[in-house]
Amino acid sequence: MRLRLEFTTEPFDLDEPPRHAVVAREVVEGGTLDAVDVGPFGNTAEGSVDAVVEAVGELLRRTLAAGATRVSLQVNVVNAVGEGGA
């Protein structure tokens, strides 16, 4: 099964990325996730169940420690085995 993670961290700062946003980017770009897309108002990444679950735990721990006051996330199944997935 393959999953897609979508998330944002708050508070927002339109002038420069806050520390928690930089940390979130480090987590998704430094792990085993792929199809990573980091933007100012939302971020997405894809991977296996294990990779996404591991990334979510790391994302929550590190962004909250870096000053995030809210982390919103959604996880969706992209495809499952037998449905064109691996």
Rank of each mutant, 00 (worst) to 15 (best):
M1E: 09
M1G: 14
R2D: 04
R2W: 05
L3Y: 14
L3V: 11
R4G: 05
L5A: 03
L5R: 04
L5W: 09
E6R: 03
T8S: 06
E10A: 11
F12I: 08
F12V: 12
D13C: 11
L14D: 13
D15C: 00
D15R: 02
D15F: 00
E16K: 12
R19T: 07
R19F: 00
R19S: 03
H20F: 08
V22H: 00
V23L: 04
A24K: 00
A24M: 11
E26F: 00
E26H: 00
E29K: 10
E29C: 08
G31T: 02
G31N: 05
T32F: 09
T32C: 09
V36F: 12
V36R: 07
D37L: 06
D37A: 08
D37Q: 08
V38R: 02
V38I: 14
V38F: 03
V38K: 02
G39W: 00
G39V: 03
P40V: 10
P40I: 00
P40H: 01
P40A: 13
F41L: 14
G42Y: 09
N43R: 01
N43H: 02
T44L: 13
A45Y: 13
A45V: 10
E46G: 04
G47H: 10
S48W: 02
V49F: 12
V49H: 11
V49Y: 13
D50P: 02
D50T: 14
D50V: 13
A51M: 07
A51P: 10
V52M: 11
V52S: 05
V52Q: 08
V53F: 14
V53P: 03
E54K: 12
G57Q: 13
G57I: 00
G57W: 03
E58I: 00
L59S: 10
L59P: 10
L59G: 08
L59W: 09
L60F: 12
L60P: 07
R61V: 12
R62N: 05
T63M: 09
L64Y: 15
L64N: 04
A65T: 01
A66D: 12
G67K: 09
G67R: 04
T69V: 12
V71H: 07
L73N: 10
Q74P: 01
Q74M: 04
Q74H: 13
V75Q: 07
V77A: 13
V78C: 01
V78S: 04
N79G: 15
N79L: 11
A80S: 14
A80I: 10
V81D: 14
E83R: 06
E83C: 04
G84L: 05
G84K: 03
G85T: 09
G85V: 02
A86G: 15
A86C: 06
A86H: 13
